[in-house]
Simulated assay, not measured.
Amino acid sequence: MIVIGVGNSYRRDDGVGPYVVERLRERGVPDEVLAVSDGETTELIDLWDGEDLAVVVDAVRAAPTHPGRIHHLAVADPPAERCRAAHGLDLGEAVELARVLGRLPRRLALYTVEATDIDYGVGLTPAVIEAAGRLTDEIAHLVQASASADTG
């Protein structure tokens, strides 16, 4: 299993992925399960290649926006429309390239949080911090369940 936090911590809400990874690290999730990425397509594929479960956390821009709203997608049910991450990455393109190359993990969960502020600066907006807390809880449970399944 791997948890990949995508984003730029110096672009406010775009840093939600790295923020969640850091909260998971503080909870004792092992470093070998955690990664941070700027979202470059081939880097993502390299990180999740060969994994049983890959969880990707990223910010997304939506119109109209609902700051802090969480979207959860699985590869088994890809969206009908593409969703652009806050930093311009099209996660659908990364997934499709990995599928063509035969480098998708067995299971891929994408969590996106609607961003409100991606200007230069540090720190998440209150709605995104609250969403990141909920995501951290949910992903911590996934990590624990995955570790239990591996040892059971």
Rank of each mutant, 00 (worst) to 15 (best):
R134V: 09
R82P: 01
V122Y: 08
A76G: 11
R12A: 00
I2M: 07
V56C: 04
T65F: 12
T41A: 09
V57I: 15
V33N: 12
S37H: 06
D77N: 12
I129F: 13
E22T: 12
R11Y: 05
D46V: 00
S37G: 05
Y120D: 09
A127E: 15
E138P: 06
G102Y: 06
T116E: 15
G121N: 03
D119C: 13
S148A: 13
H71P: 01
P64V: 00
R69D: 14
R106L: 11
R61T: 13
G68A: 02
R107C: 06
G39E: 05
E138D: 10
G88W: 08
V6H: 01
L97I: 14
S146I: 08
E114F: 04
E93I: 02
A62P: 02
G102E: 07
D13R: 00
R134C: 10
A140M: 05
I4G: 07
E81W: 10
E96V: 04
D137Y: 01
D13K: 03
I45R: 05
R11D: 00
D52G: 12
L124V: 02
A149V: 08
Y19C: 10
H72I: 15
T116L: 13
G88P: 03
T65Y: 11
V56Y: 01
L53M: 02
D14H: 03
A86C: 13
A145K: 14
A54D: 09
E51W: 01
L53H: 14
L101H: 03
R84M: 02
E130R: 13
V56T: 04
V21C: 08
L53D: 06
D38H: 08
G123D: 00
A62Q: 15
Q144L: 11
R61G: 08
V3S: 02
Y120W: 12
D150T: 11
T112N: 00
L108Y: 12
G50Y: 03
I139E: 05
R61V: 15
P78K: 05
V20W: 02
P78Y: 10
L73G: 06
A127D: 10
I2L: 06
P79L: 03
L101Y: 09
Y120P: 09
T116G: 14
G17W: 02
H66L: 13
G5S: 06
H72D: 09
P105N: 10
G68V: 00
V29G: 07
H87M: 07
A98R: 11
L135V: 14
A149I: 03
V16R: 04
I129D: 14
T151K: 15
L104R: 03
A86G: 15
G92Q: 05
L91F: 07
S148V: 14
T125Y: 04
D14K: 03
G121K: 03
V95G: 01
V57S: 08
L44K: 02
G152T: 09
P67T: 08
D46A: 07
L124Q: 02
L101E: 13
L142E: 13
V75G: 12
P126H: 06
V29S: 08
V113E: 11
I129K: 12
V100Y: 08
V56R: 00
R106P: 07
G133F: 01
V29P: 11
V143C: 08
H72L: 13
E51F: 04
E40R: 06
E32A: 09
N8D: 10
C83N: 15
